[in-house]
Amino acid sequence: MSVLTLEGISQEFGGLRALDGVNMVVEEGEIFGIIGPNGAGKTTLFNIITGIYIPSEGDLIFKERRINRMTTHNIARLGIGRTFQNIRLFNKLSVLDNVRVGSHGISRSGFFKSLLGLPSMLREEKEIKSRAEELLELVGLYDKKMEYADNLAYGEQRRLEIARALALKPSLLLLDEPAAGMNSGEKVELMKLIEQIRQEMKLTILLVEHDMSLVMNICERIAVLDYGRKIAEGPPEEIKNDERVIQSYLGVGA
């Protein structure tokens, strides 16, 4: 079953056509990679899927539901979690609080309940906290749960973003350059982590990445964007040998 379907998505900024009629189908449970040169529209695509931009044309379908006019927070509540290319953590909140905020979309207690401290709210708080701690354990940040987020090292911040996105219990996870700025050891760890969360949480993962070894290793299918157009799609082996992809992105000898 397809989780996410893009039908003829186009996005214009003034006169610039950042995306031009992109079609894509992401199947349940797969790891789908999007690659392409800088400025090809990869992050724009993520921003459209999460409702930050409204596409100029085309349809966005998540689990048989049209979502292209929905607001960002409502899309998040449907179960689409994401991380950002330029890290967007809540810097002056603790690591634990960052993850706890992550579960906002799936928790209920409103203003008055919070003010009065009703038992149902306290119970929910307990759940949120224990789940946040589990997630921190998973990404290896449990020992730093009381640190401020901006005191973490770069690679740790990337992992914290993943933990925060997972707190939403998403069924689709969007990772925007998760390996950027990581050394090779951290990249191997990251690949293991992505594989593990897909297995354990039955996630579908869509990722944008420049690191070819990572993309080729863990993605089952890859789409290549160039100047807002999709120029190729298929399993890694096929993409590696595609003439147009080599010309526009991978380069000869890759």
């Binding site: 967007r88 905020v101 919070s114």
Partner: peptide, 28 residues
């Protein structure tokens, strides 16, 4: 009590980063 609750954390999250806050399901 409010600031320690789910709502309080959401308020802080809006201050820290509005886009990230919206993407966790907060109606900013």
């Amino acid at each position: 009590r409010l600031l320690k609750s789910r709502m309080g954390r959401a308020f802080y999250a809006i201050r820290e980063n509005e886009i990230a806050a919206a993407s966790t399901g907060i109606d900013t």
